[in-house]
Simulated assay, not measured.
Amino acid sequence: MSGFDRIIGTAGLIAAVVVLGGCELGHKDTQQTGFRGAGMAQIVDPDHVAKLSAIPPPPYPLPDDSGPRARETYQNVRVLGNVSTERFNHLMAAMSQWVAPPAQGCNYCHNPNNMASDEKYTKVVARRMLQMTRTINGTWSSHVKATGVTCYTCHRGNAVPTYKWAIAEGVADPDTIVRNKHGQNSPNAAVGYASLPYDPFQTYLNGTAQIRVAASSEYPSPDHVVSVKQAEQTYGLMMHMSTALGVNCTYCHNSQSFRSWSLSRPQRATAYYGIRMVRDANAHYITSLTAVFPAYRKGPHGDPYKINCQTCHQGQSKPLGGYSMLALNPTLKGPPVPTAPPEGGAAGAAVPAVLANPQAMTRRQ
């Protein structure tokens, strides 16, 4: 072999290594989830499956819900006043496990010399989050089903959830094209490392913009005008949802027609309500705390950190593998309890009514 051939061979080997470096090599598990030939299959890389979080045991056995009410025992109990004192104490102990730093415990939210005081912003936030959790469990069963959520679903033992978002930081001068990427062309983990708009959350998970971009007709129509930029934002959100749940597109969609509801799997309807649940939580519970959060708990544009699909799911199609913590924490079940808005915040609007016939969106042919 000549020296030139060796150089070409070496260069080819290096090129192959570089190209294959972008592939996920190794065994893949495939599960057919729809009709044969419909392109409905889940492909799972066992080496990249998110590990389930350990479920923390309750602080002590759940007490009976009898005896005096929390409002009769304590002052300034605005959300859980109708719960028994013993069950109220049990939930407070559980919340310390789920959210509070170990070194602080109850003092993370409370002044130990005046437990009724609202002087710490963390207590005001915790109260609002209790309202949000009970609203989700009492109103959004179309998404969380009977499994429900608790503080641990998002926090996992952290004072601030690991997965959160705020409006992405932009360039100093948005009127110039110099260095202005308009939020794209930089592979970003938030959208599955796609070089597409990496901040679809403000548009779709805090705002109410239409996410669907596929038309009902194969021909152009003035009734359905969607820009390429809008389509890219939608794709970015779908990439986020795929990564957050650890699934591919056909977990919800049929590749014959991504638009068709009748060809989709029931999971698509669950995701539909999940998007609206997240919008409600962000707009009516978290954004209402903007004046309460300190600057270091906000994003670069001054908005508080909010939730997306990854906040709860963390790589699993069902948060915590589908394990329900509500049975041991029934205090967090609905119905939602309306209260006065937090100090300095805006009142949360009522939860929007879900569609009257969700079963119509879960049909399969």
Rank of each mutant, 00 (worst) to 15 (best):
M1R: 04
G9V: 00
T10V: 06
L13H: 01
V17C: 13
G21V: 08
C23H: 06
E24Q: 14
D29L: 15
T33V: 15
M40T: 13
Q42V: 06
V44S: 07
D47W: 07
P56L: 14
P57I: 13
P58E: 03
L62M: 05
D64L: 10
D65K: 00
G67I: 00
P68I: 05
Q75A: 14
M92V: 09
M95E: 15
A103W: 03
C106M: 13
C109I: 05
P112W: 01
M115R: 08
A116V: 08
S117C: 04
D118Q: 11
T122M: 01
V125H: 00
R128M: 03
M132T: 05
N137C: 06
N137D: 05
S142L: 11
A146T: 14
G148I: 07
C151S: 08
C151N: 03
Y152N: 03
C154Q: 04
G157C: 10
N158D: 12
P161G: 09
Y163T: 01
Y163R: 09
A168R: 06
E169K: 09
I177P: 07
V178Y: 10
K181Y: 13
K181L: 15
N188E: 12
A189W: 12
G192L: 05
A194D: 06
P197E: 11
P200W: 04
L205R: 15
A209P: 04
I211S: 07
A214Y: 12
A214K: 06
V225M: 11
G236H: 01
M239H: 09
S242C: 07
G246Y: 02
Y251Q: 00
Y251G: 00
Y251A: 08
N254F: 06
N254V: 03
S260T: 03
S260A: 14
R265C: 03
R265F: 15
P266D: 12
Q267W: 10
R268H: 05
Y272M: 12
G274W: 00
R276L: 08
R279D: 01
D280T: 06
Y285H: 12
Y285D: 00
L289W: 03
Y305T: 05
Y305K: 13
K306Q: 14
Q310T: 10
G315Q: 13
P319R: 01
Y323T: 15
L326W: 08
A327V: 13
L328C: 11
K333M: 14
G334P: 11
P335Q: 14
P336V: 04
P341M: 07
P342S: 10
P342E: 02
E343T: 15
G345T: 09
G345E: 09
L355D: 15
N357H: 07
N357V: 02
P358G: 00
Q359N: 09
Q365L: 11
